[in-house]
């Protein structure tokens, strides 16, 4: 039986009815029509479903949606500001960091969290932060390049 919950998604309070056993991934995709968040295993192995909860990357396939009440939920749809892509999204576009694009939303969320905490991550720190996001197309290289480029774009070159 569905129940009504209030979730804060990408800065908006949204009232949504869903069965309380549903994962956050399912509610985002099936009840809120936010299909930008992907699923590659639904077992917490691939990271495609990564969203931010209060700024922290979380695999939404392992997280009950009811637990996300009173938390700030951020998905890939919230990264652009009224259609203007974030510096990270722009950097991905420039380096070709997305190929098939299926892991991309999860990668973008993990990297967004990283760049908020660490404005000039080293390549090793980038690798560490993205270790939970599997990509099968790029060999990760253009993803690393994108995160480094975004860091420079956001705060300028490290002095």
């Amino acid at each position: 039986m569905k129940e009504l919950f209030r979730l804060n998604v990408n800065g908006e309070d949204t009232d949504v009815a869903f069965e309380p056993y549903k994962t956050l991934l399912e509610v985002l995709r099936e009840d809120l029509d936010l299909t930008g968040t992907k699923h590659g295993c639904e077992l917490g192995e691939c990271g495609a479903c990564t969203v931010l909860l209060d700024g922290r990357p979380v695999m939404s396939c392992l997280y009950l949606a009811v637990e996300a009440q009173n938390k700030r939920i951020e998905t890939v749809e919230g990264l652009a500001d009224r259609g203007v892509p974030s510096a990270l999204q722009t950097a991905f576009a420039r380096t070709g960091g997305a190929q098939c694009g299926y892991c991309t939303p999860g990668v973008l969320m993990s990297a967004t969290a990283l760049l908020r905490e660490n404005t000039h991550p080293s390549r090793d720190e980038i690798k560490e932060a993205l270790a939970g996001n599997l990509c099968r197309c790029t060999g990760y290289i253009k993803i690393f390049d994108a995160v480094e480029l975004a860091a420079v774009e956001i705060t300028g070159p490290e002095s």
Partner: peptide, 12 residues
């Protein structure tokens, strides 16, 4: 840029 860059980077 790639033809579909925007769609693939915004979840669209």
């Amino acid at each position: 840029l790639k033809y579909d860059w925007h769609a693939k980077l915004t979840g669209a």
